[in-house]
Protein backbone atom coordinates (compact mmCIF):
# COMPACT_ATOMS: atom_id res chain seq x y z
CA UNK A 1 0.00 0.00 0.00
CA UNK A 2 1.16 3.47 -0.81
CA UNK A 3 2.35 4.84 2.51
CA UNK A 4 1.03 8.36 2.09
CA UNK A 5 -2.04 7.62 0.03
CA UNK A 6 -4.61 5.24 1.46
CA UNK A 7 -6.65 5.27 -1.75
CA UNK A 8 -4.11 3.55 -3.98
CA UNK A 9 -4.64 -0.19 -4.47
CA UNK A 10 -1.96 -2.73 -5.29
CA UNK A 11 -2.32 -5.75 -7.54
CA UNK A 12 -3.15 -9.24 -6.36
CA UNK A 13 -3.47 -12.30 -8.55
CA UNK A 14 -6.44 -14.61 -8.40
CA UNK A 15 -5.16 -18.13 -7.69
CA UNK A 16 -8.39 -20.07 -7.48
CA UNK A 17 -12.12 -19.51 -7.91
CA UNK A 18 -14.64 -21.74 -6.11
CA UNK A 19 -18.35 -21.67 -6.86
CA UNK A 20 -20.03 -21.69 -3.45
CA UNK A 21 -23.66 -21.07 -4.41
CA UNK A 22 -25.47 -19.83 -7.52
CA UNK A 23 -24.50 -16.25 -6.59
CA UNK A 24 -21.47 -16.58 -4.31
CA UNK A 25 -17.92 -17.40 -5.35
CA UNK A 26 -14.79 -17.62 -3.24
CA UNK A 27 -11.68 -16.06 -4.75
CA UNK A 28 -8.32 -17.08 -3.40
CA UNK A 29 -5.91 -14.23 -4.08
CA UNK A 30 -2.19 -13.96 -3.64
CA UNK A 31 -0.86 -11.12 -1.51
CA UNK A 32 2.71 -10.27 -2.39
CA UNK A 33 3.15 -7.61 0.28
CA UNK A 34 5.30 -9.31 2.98
CA UNK A 35 4.04 -6.85 5.61
CA UNK A 36 0.40 -7.74 5.05
CA UNK A 37 -1.05 -9.10 8.26
CA UNK A 38 -4.77 -9.36 8.85
CA UNK A 39 -6.79 -10.72 11.73
CA UNK A 40 -10.17 -12.47 11.75
CA UNK A 41 -12.94 -9.91 11.26
CA UNK A 42 -10.98 -7.49 9.12
CA UNK A 43 -11.85 -6.54 5.56
CA UNK A 44 -10.12 -5.13 2.53
CA UNK A 45 -11.08 -2.83 -0.32
CA UNK A 46 -11.36 -4.71 -3.57
CA UNK A 47 -10.84 -2.79 -6.80
CA UNK A 48 -11.75 -3.64 -10.32
CA UNK A 49 -10.42 -0.66 -12.13
CA UNK A 50 -13.16 0.56 -14.40
CA UNK A 51 -15.95 -1.01 -12.36
CA UNK A 52 -15.06 0.50 -8.99
CA UNK A 53 -14.23 -0.51 -5.48
CA UNK A 54 -16.03 -2.12 -2.57
CA UNK A 55 -15.26 -3.44 0.91
CA UNK A 56 -15.10 -7.23 1.18
CA UNK A 57 -14.52 -9.16 4.38
CA UNK A 58 -11.57 -11.50 4.42
CA UNK A 59 -12.94 -15.00 4.78
CA UNK A 60 -9.78 -16.91 5.58
CA UNK A 61 -7.60 -17.00 8.69
CA UNK A 62 -4.15 -15.35 8.59
CA UNK A 63 -2.53 -18.76 8.70
CA UNK A 64 -3.43 -19.16 5.02
CA UNK A 65 -1.19 -16.23 3.99
CA UNK A 66 0.32 -15.38 1.55
CA UNK A 67 -3.06 -16.14 0.02
CA UNK A 68 -6.39 -15.13 1.41
CA UNK A 69 -10.00 -15.85 0.53
CA UNK A 70 -12.70 -13.42 -0.46
CA UNK A 71 -16.18 -14.92 -0.57
CA UNK A 72 -18.22 -12.60 -2.69
CA UNK A 73 -21.92 -12.45 -3.35
CA UNK A 74 -22.99 -10.97 -6.65
CA UNK A 75 -24.90 -7.88 -5.57
CA UNK A 76 -23.63 -4.73 -7.23
CA UNK A 77 -21.47 -3.52 -10.08
CA UNK A 78 -18.07 -4.43 -8.65
CA UNK A 79 -19.09 -7.82 -7.32
CA UNK A 80 -20.82 -8.58 -10.62
CA UNK A 81 -17.59 -7.76 -12.45
CA UNK A 82 -15.46 -9.83 -10.05
CA UNK A 83 -17.64 -12.82 -10.75
CA UNK A 84 -16.49 -12.71 -14.38
CA UNK A 85 -12.84 -13.23 -13.41
CA UNK A 86 -10.72 -16.36 -13.67
CA UNK A 87 -7.52 -17.56 -12.00
CA UNK A 88 -4.52 -15.74 -13.36
CA UNK A 89 -6.34 -12.43 -13.63
CA UNK A 90 -5.59 -9.61 -11.20
CA UNK A 91 -7.61 -7.42 -8.92
CA UNK A 92 -6.64 -4.38 -6.89
CA UNK A 93 -6.64 -4.52 -3.10
CA UNK A 94 -5.85 -2.24 -0.22
CA UNK A 95 -6.10 -2.96 3.47
CA UNK A 96 -6.48 -4.78 5.76
CA UNK A 97 -8.92 -2.51 7.54
CA UNK A 98 -11.15 -2.45 10.55
CA UNK A 99 -11.20 -3.65 14.11
CA UNK A 100 -10.87 -7.43 14.26
CA UNK A 101 -12.70 -9.85 16.52
CA UNK A 102 -11.12 -9.73 19.99
CA UNK A 103 -10.09 -13.38 19.87
CA UNK A 104 -7.46 -12.95 22.59
CA UNK A 105 -10.27 -12.11 25.00
CA UNK A 106 -12.09 -15.29 24.05
CA UNK A 107 -9.41 -17.70 25.19
CA UNK A 108 -10.77 -20.68 27.14
CA UNK A 109 -14.31 -19.57 26.39
CA UNK A 110 -16.92 -21.50 24.43
CA UNK A 111 -17.58 -20.01 21.02
CA UNK A 112 -21.07 -19.92 19.58
CA UNK A 113 -20.92 -18.93 15.92
CA UNK A 114 -24.23 -18.00 14.30
CA UNK A 115 -24.19 -17.25 10.60
CA UNK A 116 -26.72 -16.66 7.87
CA UNK A 117 -26.09 -16.76 4.11
CA UNK A 118 -22.94 -14.92 3.06
CA UNK A 119 -22.67 -13.83 6.72
CA UNK A 120 -20.60 -16.93 7.42
CA UNK A 121 -17.74 -15.44 5.38
CA UNK A 122 -16.38 -13.03 8.03
CA UNK A 123 -16.96 -15.69 10.72
CA UNK A 124 -15.00 -18.39 8.91
CA UNK A 125 -11.58 -17.03 9.99
CA UNK A 126 -12.66 -17.36 13.64
CA UNK A 127 -13.58 -21.00 13.12
CA UNK A 128 -10.39 -21.72 11.19
CA UNK A 129 -8.23 -20.02 13.78
CA UNK A 130 -9.98 -21.70 16.71
CA UNK A 131 -9.61 -25.12 15.09
CA UNK A 132 -5.99 -24.40 14.44
CA UNK A 133 -5.35 -23.44 18.08
CA UNK A 134 -7.92 -25.87 19.43
CA UNK A 135 -6.51 -25.97 22.96
CA UNK A 136 -6.96 -22.21 23.44
CA UNK A 137 -10.74 -22.25 23.20
CA UNK A 138 -13.63 -24.17 24.77
CA UNK A 139 -16.47 -25.79 22.85
CA UNK A 140 -17.09 -24.58 19.36
CA UNK A 141 -20.72 -24.53 18.22
CA UNK A 142 -21.58 -23.46 14.71
CA UNK A 143 -25.14 -22.65 13.72
CA UNK A 144 -25.48 -21.78 10.09
CA UNK A 145 -28.46 -21.26 7.83
CA UNK A 146 -29.26 -20.15 4.32
CA UNK A 147 -32.33 -19.70 2.15
CA UNK A 148 -31.99 -23.13 0.55
CA UNK A 149 -29.55 -26.06 0.60
CA UNK A 150 -27.95 -24.68 -2.57
CA UNK A 151 -27.29 -21.36 -0.82
CA UNK A 152 -25.10 -22.82 1.92
CA UNK A 153 -21.48 -21.68 1.51
CA UNK A 154 -18.27 -23.61 2.31
CA UNK A 155 -20.13 -26.91 1.90
CA UNK A 156 -17.02 -29.13 2.03
CA UNK A 157 -15.59 -27.33 5.02
CA UNK A 158 -18.87 -27.56 6.92
CA UNK A 159 -18.48 -31.32 6.75
CA UNK A 160 -14.89 -31.11 7.99
CA UNK A 161 -15.92 -28.89 10.87
CA UNK A 162 -18.55 -31.42 11.89
CA UNK A 163 -15.83 -33.96 12.47
CA UNK A 164 -13.46 -31.59 14.29
CA UNK A 165 -12.80 -32.16 18.01
CA UNK A 166 -15.15 -30.38 20.42
CA UNK A 167 -17.14 -28.93 17.55
CA UNK A 168 -20.85 -29.10 16.81
CA UNK A 169 -22.30 -27.92 13.54
CA UNK A 170 -26.02 -27.23 13.13
CA UNK A 171 -27.31 -26.42 9.69
CA UNK A 172 -30.72 -25.13 8.70
CA UNK A 173 -32.41 -23.82 5.57
CA UNK A 174 -35.43 -21.53 5.20
CA UNK A 175 -36.86 -23.82 2.58
CA UNK A 176 -35.81 -27.44 2.17
CA UNK A 177 -36.28 -29.61 -0.89
CA UNK A 178 -34.28 -32.00 -3.03
CA UNK A 179 -32.08 -34.27 -1.01
CA UNK A 180 -32.11 -32.05 2.06
CA UNK A 181 -32.97 -34.05 5.15
CA UNK A 182 -31.62 -31.58 7.67
CA UNK A 183 -33.35 -28.91 9.71
CA UNK A 184 -35.76 -26.52 8.04
CA UNK A 185 -36.49 -23.13 9.63
CA UNK A 186 -35.04 -19.71 10.28
CA UNK A 187 -31.76 -19.34 12.15
CA UNK A 188 -33.13 -17.43 15.17
CA UNK A 189 -35.89 -20.01 15.72
CA UNK A 190 -33.41 -22.87 15.46
CA UNK A 191 -31.17 -21.08 17.90
CA UNK A 192 -33.97 -20.91 20.45
CA UNK A 193 -34.73 -24.55 19.84
CA UNK A 194 -31.10 -25.51 20.52
CA UNK A 195 -31.00 -23.26 23.58
CA UNK A 196 -27.22 -22.98 24.10
CA UNK A 197 -26.04 -21.99 27.55
CA UNK A 198 -24.60 -18.52 27.99
CA UNK A 199 -22.17 -19.75 30.58
CA UNK A 200 -18.57 -18.89 29.73
CA UNK A 201 -19.68 -18.39 26.14
CA UNK A 202 -19.23 -15.74 23.47
CA UNK A 203 -21.85 -15.58 20.72
CA UNK A 204 -20.67 -14.20 17.40
CA UNK A 205 -23.18 -13.53 14.66
CA UNK A 206 -23.31 -12.22 11.15
CA UNK A 207 -25.94 -12.44 8.45
CA UNK A 208 -28.70 -10.40 6.88
CA UNK A 209 -29.65 -7.45 9.15
CA UNK A 210 -33.08 -8.90 9.85
CA UNK A 211 -31.54 -12.19 10.95
CA UNK A 212 -29.07 -10.41 13.22
CA UNK A 213 -31.93 -8.50 14.84
CA UNK A 214 -33.83 -11.66 15.68
CA UNK A 215 -30.70 -13.54 16.75
CA UNK A 216 -29.95 -10.73 19.21
CA UNK A 217 -33.46 -11.02 20.60
CA UNK A 218 -33.18 -14.78 20.92
CA UNK A 219 -29.79 -14.57 22.65
CA UNK A 220 -31.12 -12.00 25.09
CA UNK A 221 -34.01 -14.31 25.87
CA UNK A 222 -31.48 -17.05 26.64
CA UNK A 223 -29.77 -14.69 29.11
CA UNK A 224 -26.73 -13.78 27.04
CA UNK A 225 -25.60 -10.34 28.18
CA UNK A 226 -25.05 -7.66 25.50
CA UNK A 227 -21.31 -7.85 26.26
CA UNK A 228 -21.32 -11.54 25.40
CA UNK A 229 -22.75 -10.95 21.94
CA UNK A 230 -20.50 -9.85 19.10
CA UNK A 231 -21.50 -9.02 15.56
CA UNK A 232 -19.91 -7.47 12.53
CA UNK A 233 -21.76 -4.69 10.74
CA UNK A 234 -20.49 -5.17 7.24
CA UNK A 235 -22.57 -2.34 5.90
CA UNK A 236 -22.64 1.13 4.39
CA UNK A 237 -18.86 1.26 4.15
CA UNK A 238 -17.19 2.77 1.13
CA UNK A 239 -13.67 4.17 1.48
CA UNK A 240 -12.68 1.88 4.33
CA UNK A 241 -10.46 4.48 5.97
CA UNK A 242 -12.93 6.71 7.82
CA UNK A 243 -12.86 9.59 5.37
CA UNK A 244 -15.84 9.35 3.01
CA UNK A 245 -18.35 9.79 5.83
CA UNK A 246 -20.78 7.09 4.72
CA UNK A 247 -20.68 4.47 7.44
CA UNK A 248 -21.30 6.71 10.43
CA UNK A 249 -22.90 4.97 13.38
CA UNK A 250 -23.27 7.43 16.20
CA UNK A 251 -19.84 8.93 16.74
CA UNK A 252 -18.15 5.87 15.26
CA UNK A 253 -17.38 4.87 11.72
CA UNK A 254 -18.07 1.25 10.99
CA UNK A 255 -14.98 0.97 8.79
CA UNK A 256 -12.37 2.07 11.31
CA UNK A 257 -14.06 1.67 14.70
CA UNK A 258 -15.78 -1.56 13.60
CA UNK A 259 -16.92 -3.47 11.69
CA UNK A 260 -16.81 -5.70 14.76
CA UNK A 261 -18.98 -4.39 17.61
CA UNK A 262 -20.40 -5.96 20.72
CA UNK A 263 -24.16 -5.75 21.10
CA UNK A 264 -23.52 -3.58 24.17
CA UNK A 265 -21.66 -1.08 21.99
CA UNK A 266 -24.36 -1.08 19.32
CA UNK A 267 -27.05 -0.38 21.91
CA UNK A 268 -25.08 2.66 22.97
CA UNK A 269 -24.51 3.91 19.44
CA UNK A 270 -27.92 3.18 17.99
CA UNK A 271 -30.57 2.91 20.70
CA UNK A 272 -33.39 2.04 18.29
CA UNK A 273 -31.15 -0.49 16.50
CA UNK A 274 -31.56 1.37 13.23
CA UNK A 275 -27.95 0.29 12.71
CA UNK A 276 -29.37 -3.13 12.05
CA UNK A 277 -31.89 -2.10 9.46
Amino acid sequence: MSADNPYIPFTAEIMKVTDETPDIKTFEINITDPDWNHKPGQFLELSLLGAGECPISISSAPIQLPTLDLSIKRAGIVTEAVHQLYPGEVVGVRGPYGRPFPMEEWRSKNLLIIGGGIGLAPLRPIIQQALCQRELYGDLTILYGARSPADLVFKEELKEWEGAPGTDVYLTVDKGGGEWDGHVGFVPAYLEELGPSPENTVAVTCGPPIMIRFVLKALEKMNFTPEQIITTLEMKMQCGVGLCGRCGLGDKYICIDGPVFSYAEILKLSPDLSALK
Binding site: Y7, L49, G52, K236, Q238, G245, R246
Partner: peptide, 29 residues
Protein backbone atom coordinates in the same frame (compact mmCIF):
# COMPACT_ATOMS: atom_id res chain seq x y z
CA UNK B 1 -17.15 16.01 4.01
CA UNK B 2 -19.00 13.08 2.44
CA UNK B 3 -18.05 11.81 -0.95
CA UNK B 4 -18.68 8.87 -3.19
CA UNK B 5 -16.21 7.24 -5.51
CA UNK B 6 -16.77 6.04 -9.04
CA UNK B 7 -14.59 4.83 -11.87
CA UNK B 8 -14.88 6.48 -15.25
CA UNK B 9 -13.23 4.35 -17.86
CA UNK B 10 -13.24 3.44 -21.50
CA UNK B 11 -12.53 -0.17 -20.65
CA UNK B 12 -8.78 0.08 -20.86
CA UNK B 13 -7.81 3.26 -19.14
CA UNK B 14 -9.68 5.65 -16.97
CA UNK B 15 -9.78 7.46 -13.69
CA UNK B 16 -11.10 6.92 -10.21
CA UNK B 17 -13.06 10.00 -9.27
CA UNK B 18 -14.57 11.09 -6.03
CA UNK B 19 -17.54 13.41 -6.03
CA UNK B 20 -19.47 15.12 -3.28
CA UNK B 21 -22.32 13.02 -1.99
CA UNK B 22 -25.31 14.08 0.03
CA UNK B 23 -26.84 12.05 2.82
CA UNK B 24 -30.21 13.52 1.80
CA UNK B 25 -30.15 11.47 -1.38
CA UNK B 26 -32.16 8.28 -0.91
CA UNK B 27 -29.33 6.36 -2.58
CA UNK B 28 -26.63 7.57 -0.18
CA UNK B 29 -26.89 4.78 2.37
Amino acid sequence: QCFSVQDISDGKSGKRVRCWATCQDCRFA
